[in-house]
Design a binder for these strands. Structure first.
Length: 322
DNA sequence: GACTCGTGGGC
DNA sequence: TGCCCAAGAGT
């Protein structure tokens, strides 16, 4: 026990200083910024997050400003980032914190905030408040899985990584946790790990056994279904018909009206279609220009930028707008 | 515990 | 190209 903390922190302080994300975090050490960044980083790459993070904190520099914003503003700054419940929950969480009077300063207290779970509470607690608590994400699980040749996967691996990481914390828990994640993201990566330059290679079970790519053990996943739908492109007096999604996937975002149909309603997939892949299904949408008025609101084309749209809808707007 | 919830990078 | 996957949380 306690064998990886020192070489890990040494690597972090000497080799990871110029990582793009490290620079951003050092510039914005307060808990609100850490919170925003950690939520954006959930299931999302650093490279993708950075520009969104910069725009977001510029528009909403404090919790109070975010709490007072309206949902369309918040979602507009989240357009294209995906997992929009993160934005809705972040917004709700800001209102919660303002109502509480002060920013929660322990992982236990942070867990009460909407959208803050085990990962985010531990990240904010350790990075912003120096709390001794391990952060467990996909990177940490992969690093420990390889370090100790762990056979567990899923939740069992999560629990093992938590215990093992906790036992390794010696000092600077925030830096330690950040170092572990940065190591996993850059050196101990899923596909092409750079074991030669890894500060932990002499401690690594999988490296010494020559089976790094065998860990972590994979979880078998189900095949994704394919769905189909018809989009109504309705124009009237230079305006376009849109509506707001009130539930389910992409909730809170706007869209051109569309309904799901059976595949047998189509003869062939041609240029009238747009394909988009979500987390757990593929979607083919056929765009049909029509005059038939549906439920929704007409807005000027110039006003489209004022409404949050998903990447799917942006794809359709770009392709079919004359 | 299983399912829902997006998107773009990288190979 | 198509597939894997990425700093999770809510239900």
């Amino acid at each position: 026990m306690g064998k990886i903390s020192k070489p890990l922190l040494f690597w972090y302080y000497n080799s990871a200083r110029d990582l793009p994300w490290r620079v951003v975090k050092d510039l914005h050490p307060n808990p609100y910024f850490v919170w925003v960044s950690e939520v954006m980083l959930q299931q999302t790459g650093v490279k993708t997050v950075i520009p969104y993070f910069q725009r977001f904190i510029q528009a909403f520099p404090t919790v109070d400003v975010l709490a007072k914003a309206n949902q369309d503003q918040v979602l507009s700054l989240w357009q294209g980032l995906g997992y929009y419940s993160r934005a809705r929950n972040l917004h709700a969480g800001a209102k919660q914190i303002v109502a509480m009077g002060e920013f929660p300063q322990t992982a236990i207290e942070l867990l009460k905030i909407k959208g803050i779970g085990p990962y985010t509470s531990a990240a904010i607690g350790s990075i912003s408040f120096g709390e001794t608590i391990p952060v467990v994400d996909g990177n940490v699980k992969r690093v420990f899985s390889r370090l100790f040749c762990l056979e567990e996967k899923g939740q069992a691996l999560h629990d093992r990584a938590f215990e093992l990481s906790l036992a390794e914390i010696e000092s600077s828990p925030g830096d330690y946790n950040s170092a572990l994640m940065d190591l996993g993201a850059t050196v101990c990566s899923p596909r092409n790990p750079q074991c030669e330059i890894c500060p932990l290679k002499l401690n690594c079970c999988a490296f010494k056994a020559g089976c790094v790519l065998d860990y972590p053990k994979k979880i078998e996943k189900k095949p994704m279904p394919t769905k189909y739908g018809i989009v109504a492109w309705v124009e009237k007096d230079g305006e376009l018909l849109i509506r707001k999604r009130e539930q389910g996937i992409l909730k809170g975002l706007y869209e051109l009206p569309w309904d799901e149909v059976e595949k047998t309603d189509y003869d062939k997939i041609d240029s009238d279609f747009v394909k988009h892949t979500f987390t757990h299904f593929h979607l083919y949408l056929k765009i049909v220009r029509t005059k038939k008025i549906q439920e929704g609101q007409f807005i000027l084309f110039e006003s489209l930028k004022d409404y949050p749209f998903s990447t799917l809808m942006k794809k359709i707007l770009k392709k079919f707008r004359l």
